[in-house]
Amino acid sequence: MIDVPLSASLFHGGAELETVDGAVRLHRLPLPYRSREADGQLRLMESQPSGVRLVFGTRATTLELELRATRVAYKGLARERGAVDVTINGDLHGSHPLRYGNVLEIDMQTGGTASLAGEIDRVSVEELAPGDKHVEIWLPHNEQVDVVALRADAPVHPLRDERPVWVHHGSSISHGSNAATPLQIWPAVAARGAGVNLRNLGFGGSAVVDPFMARVIRDAPADAISVKLGINVVNLDAMRARSFVPAVHGFLDTIREGHPRTPLALVSPIFCGIHEETPGPGSFDVDELRAGRVRFVATGDPTRTREGVLTLEVIRDLLAQVVRDRAGDPHLHFISGLDLYGPEDAEEFPLPDGLHPDTATHELIARRFVGVAFAPGGSLRPAGSP
């Protein structure tokens, strides 16, 4: 087997590589932002490589990937493990759940944490057909991974991705929460369906209209941009209407400094019953935790919306108004999250924990997003697309 150098040219969809204990750690945010402006939550989320994949050409029939994973676990609660998805010439070849790795265990009762060391995961991809092939190895969306080694039984060479680049920013739903594998998160499903090159800036708990996030998007190559805002602002009770509206305008102004005519969609939150009329903060349902299950509740006072306290219903109206107020920008579009997942969908596809969609619902959201954004006449269809 040949040891393949882990050069930056092999990795698509991320920002930077960091060498950690002889392995390569993937980052989705550049160092200045993650070290200076990101809090602990965002630093953890940006090092989970949602949408990041190794892309290369080879004639190999056997591949081996070694990963050192670090996952967050809640004491007494079961959580699904991350997985590695492999495609060959665009078709799914196999999905490989992780089994080992390090654990950051959080005790929800006391707030205490414990770090537990684990073994390296080894993913083997065998019996590939002979001949030239395009390989993509999608890394786990929900665990931090350090790539220790890549081996093949034939030479490997990086490949360029000539497809239009879609940069998407959003919350844990865009990050992929509750989807089973990295290819089943809705941005990945949508990107593959639309034939675009995904850079996923979905970060769990962290889509709060941060000015630096707008600068990241401003400076990123992009042929289409979408920004999905609202749910984290509500469930963190992070803003009032007075501060939210100018913050969104400023966010869009910053993006437009680098992308003055790039198709840009402002996307409002999908339906989430707990926060439609009830503000945050959001919290864990204590009774469900005692029963060994995760479910979220809203704890705010619905009567305070007249004071500028935000709910999802209020935020959707505000975001639609922002776009109307920027009518001079013909490349800016509003997409209602209710068109992606609405109250009627909640009957058939309920959010299992009250906040995050399951795998089937990720697929539903992706299919609808492609229809409104990337289909002929769609708001994000890059110029020159067939």
Rank of each mutant, 00 (worst) to 15 (best):
residue 9 S to V: 05
residue 12 H to C: 07
residue 14 G to T: 09
residue 16 E to W: 05
residue 16 E to A: 15
residue 18 E to F: 04
residue 22 G to T: 02
residue 24 V to M: 14
residue 31 L to G: 05
residue 33 Y to V: 12
residue 33 Y to F: 15
residue 39 D to C: 12
residue 43 R to F: 00
residue 45 M to T: 06
residue 45 M to Q: 13
residue 54 L to T: 02
residue 55 V to N: 02
residue 61 T to G: 14
residue 63 L to W: 02
residue 63 L to K: 10
residue 65 L to Y: 03
residue 71 R to W: 03
residue 75 K to T: 13
residue 82 G to N: 00
residue 82 G to W: 00
residue 91 D to W: 00
residue 93 H to A: 13
residue 96 H to R: 08
residue 97 P to M: 09
residue 105 E to D: 10
residue 105 E to T: 09
residue 108 M to L: 15
residue 108 M to I: 03
residue 117 A to W: 07
residue 124 S to M: 13
residue 127 E to H: 12
residue 127 E to R: 13
residue 133 K to V: 01
residue 136 E to P: 08
residue 137 I to E: 03
residue 139 L to K: 08
residue 140 P to F: 04
residue 141 H to S: 05
residue 148 V to H: 01
residue 152 A to D: 05
residue 153 D to R: 01
residue 158 P to K: 06
residue 162 E to Q: 11
residue 162 E to P: 03
residue 163 R to M: 01
residue 166 W to R: 03
residue 169 H to S: 15
residue 199 R to W: 02
residue 200 N to W: 05
residue 202 G to K: 00
residue 206 S to G: 08
residue 209 V to H: 04
residue 214 A to F: 01
residue 218 R to W: 06
residue 218 R to I: 04
residue 224 A to S: 15
residue 229 L to N: 02
residue 233 V to K: 08
residue 236 L to V: 00
residue 238 A to L: 11
residue 239 M to I: 00
residue 239 M to D: 12
residue 242 R to G: 11
residue 244 F to I: 00
residue 245 V to A: 12
residue 248 V to Y: 06
residue 250 G to I: 03
residue 251 F to I: 07
residue 252 L to N: 03
residue 257 E to P: 02
residue 260 P to W: 09
residue 261 R to I: 02
residue 261 R to K: 14
residue 262 T to N: 13
residue 263 P to H: 09
residue 267 V to F: 09
residue 267 V to A: 11
residue 271 F to E: 14
residue 271 F to I: 08
residue 272 C to V: 15
residue 272 C to M: 15
residue 273 G to E: 13
residue 273 G to M: 05
residue 278 T to M: 08
residue 278 T to L: 11
residue 281 P to N: 10
residue 282 G to Y: 08
residue 290 R to V: 05
residue 293 R to V: 05
residue 295 R to I: 05
residue 296 F to D: 07
residue 300 G to W: 00
residue 305 T to P: 09
residue 307 E to W: 02
residue 308 G to T: 04
residue 310 L to M: 12
residue 321 Q to H: 10
residue 321 Q to K: 15
residue 323 V to H: 06
residue 325 D to Q: 13
residue 326 R to E: 08
residue 329 D to S: 10
residue 330 P to D: 14
residue 332 L to H: 11
residue 342 G to A: 12
residue 342 G to W: 04
residue 350 P to H: 10
residue 350 P to F: 08
residue 354 G to E: 06
residue 354 G to T: 07
residue 357 P to T: 03
residue 358 D to G: 15
residue 359 T to V: 06
residue 363 E to L: 11
residue 364 L to I: 03
residue 369 F to W: 13
residue 370 V to Y: 01
residue 373 A to E: 06
residue 373 A to T: 07
residue 375 A to E: 14
residue 376 P to E: 12
residue 378 G to P: 02
residue 382 P to R: 01
